[in-house]
Computed example of a mutant assay.
Amino acid sequence: MPLMTVCILIASVAFFFSWPASQTQAGGRLSAPFLEEKTPTIAPYAFVKLCVETPRECRTKGGANRTQLNSRVERALVSVNRSVNKAILPGKDNKGNDAWRLSPRSGDCEDYAVTKRKKLIDGGLPPRSIRLAMATTPNGEAHVVVIVKTPTADLVLDNRNDEIKPVNKVDLHWLMIESADNPKRWRWL
């Protein structure tokens, strides 16, 4: 691993451990690095279609609720985020035909997110701690990312950049998140 990558990882971990645990809102953004799950809701329709086409991706989940951060996990998060961001070319679904696909040649945010989620779980991270979340971008576009729940922060893996950030350090307005136990169930944020 190049020295620069090691230095970035060390700085990122040190930064994660320095956040306050307050849940107050500041300027419309979370001040704490954790998402607060609220009432149940139904999964996005295109995700339900993915479950029908690929039932393995929607099985009941097991493992810990939070992934313990260590050097192996940090390397996996960085590697999966970068490799999937590089492997999938940006593209859009046809209007009225939203599809969430695993490892396509080109795709939109949902395709990046479900591919990252699968690779992290296949890589041995606890499935209950790897979740999909829907949000809106500053310009109001719907956006899907992967959330990795850790003891120190809920981390965001986003196709818009290779940097892994806590939920309170991204420019997203959170809407809903996949349930820890059952991917077919989601919760409002």
Rank of each mutant, 00 (worst) to 15 (best):
P2Y: 11
L3C: 13
V6H: 11
I10N: 10
S12T: 14
A14K: 03
F16S: 06
F17M: 08
Q23A: 14
A26I: 14
G28D: 09
L30P: 00
A32I: 03
F34A: 01
E36V: 13
E37G: 01
E37Q: 07
T39I: 09
F47P: 02
F47L: 14
K49G: 05
L50W: 01
L50H: 05
T54E: 15
P55Y: 11
P55V: 12
R56G: 12
C58W: 05
K61M: 15
A64M: 07
N65Q: 05
L69E: 02
N70R: 11
N70G: 10
N70Q: 08
V73N: 04
V80R: 00
V80N: 01
N81V: 05
R82E: 12
S83G: 05
K86M: 05
K86A: 09
I88C: 02
I88W: 03
D93S: 01
G96K: 04
A99E: 12
L102A: 06
S103Q: 11
S106D: 09
C109N: 06
E110Y: 02
Y112E: 08
Y112G: 07
V114D: 09
T115Q: 09
K118E: 08
P127I: 03
P127K: 02
P127R: 01
R128V: 07
M134R: 02
T136R: 15
T137H: 03
G140E: 03
H143K: 07
V145C: 03
V145G: 03
K149P: 00
A153M: 06
L155R: 02
V156R: 04
L157F: 10
L157G: 02
D158T: 02
N159R: 07
R160G: 10
N161K: 12
D162I: 12
D162M: 09
E163S: 13
E163K: 13
P166Q: 06
V167K: 01
V167L: 05
H173Q: 14
W174N: 07
E178H: 04
D181N: 12
P183H: 04
W186G: 04
W186P: 00
W186T: 06
L189I: 14
